[in-house]
Nucleic acid binder design. Structure first.
Length: 298
DNA sequence: ATTTAGCCGGGGCCGTTACG
DNA sequence: CGTAACGGCCCCGGCTAAAT
């Protein structure tokens, strides 16, 4: 390889090719035509003396050499991008970009609104796209730029991602206003007698971490309904004798429900921001993270 | 006589369209 | 997906002419 004539543009192309494993999509990402990227690929092949990507039935398959190159290349290019973006001063009033945030419906309801209000006021050119959090896919989504930021429990985030805690959340027990069997001084025995609604984001699960804790204490509660979203629980509970544990901020200020402290079972969790190294030094994303840190719900 | 400014023109690179 | 053919662009070398 002739390092004196090393073309750094080709490395950015290689990065896109390795991530997409498809010339057409890599070209789109690079804002080039497919043939342009194809010829760049052929130059990369000369450069590395390796086919790098071999056409297959579906897209292209990376060679061992290509896979080996992937991580160090990403690291190096991220470093370059960092140095470039961190030296640009960021003007939120002029910024024009879309930030994609992944979170659960609960967080969408609780912090989504305050984030948007804040951004609208300070950075009218920033659009926000909120999408559902898919924990198993998160790291890949962030690596390819489909997701910029996730709001979630930092402990549950892939360890390779960066995280910053935002606030601690507690669960409260909710029931309809005139529910006869709930109060602030409930015992675990009282609690497990009730009929419960739980949330299973995956869908269909009746057993949650709370049930596991109860089991170790020798109790079982009666879960009669499993839903896929936090958002409708208040309505369900208000219209029935069912009760549910929900994050306090989801129901804070509601006067049409009875809110009580649940008996002493582990009912806290942390909410944080999670992002990828590639956005670490990006001045706009940095600024957005700062804003979110400031605009927290109480 | 040497340096500098400005003007071509060739060649290479890159990206596009067209096509296999 | 890859190749071929085409065209635009830019860089650079070489030239002339003016300035020092």
């Amino acid at each position: 390889m002739d390092t004196k004539r090393l073309d750094l543009n080709l490395l950015a192309t290689l990065e896109a090719l390795l991530e997409e494993q498809n010339v057409t999509r890599a070209a789109e990402r690079l804002h080039l035509s497919q043939p342009a990227v194809s010829t760049q690929l052929s130059r990369l092949r000369d450069m590395f003396n390796d086919p790098l990507l071999i056409p297959a039935h579906r897209g292209m398959v990376p060679t061992a050499k290509a896979l080996e190159l992937r991580a160090p290349l990403r690291l190096a290019l991220d470093q370059v991008r960092d140095t470039l973006t961190s030296h640009q001063h960021f003007d939120p009033t002029q910024a024009k970009l879309t930030v994609t945030i992944a979170c659960t419906d609960y967080l969408q309801a609780v912090i989504g609104l305050s984030i948007i209000k804040d951004l609208r006021r300070q950075a009218p050119g920033i659009r926000v796209a909120i999408r559902n959090l898919e924990p198993p896919r998160l790291e890949a989504q962030m690596a390819c730029g489909d997701v910029d930021l996730a709001l979630m429990t930092p402990e549950e985030a892939p360890p390779a991602l960066r995280a910053r805690p935002l606030y601690d959340e507690v669960y409260v027990l909710i029931g309809r206003l005139d529910h006869p069997h709930i109060s602030d001084r409930m015992t675990i025995e009282d609690y497990v007698q009730l009929e419960h609604v739980v949330v299973s984001l995956r869908g269909g699960d009746f057993s949650t971490p709370v049930d596991q804790v109860l089991r170790t204490l020798g109790y079982t509660r009666n879960v009669v309904l499993s839903v896929a979203s936090f958002l409708f629980i208040p309505e369900i509970v208000a219209e029935s004798h069912l009760v549910a544990l929900v994050p306090r901020r989801l129901v804070a200020g509601r006067t049409d429900l009875k809110l009580v402290d649940p008996p002493t079972i582990s009912t806290r969790f942390t909410v944080g921001m999670v992002w990828h190294d590639r956005n670490q030094g990006h001045s706009a994303h940095r600024w957005v993270r700062e804003q979110i840190g400031h605009s927290l719900p109480n």
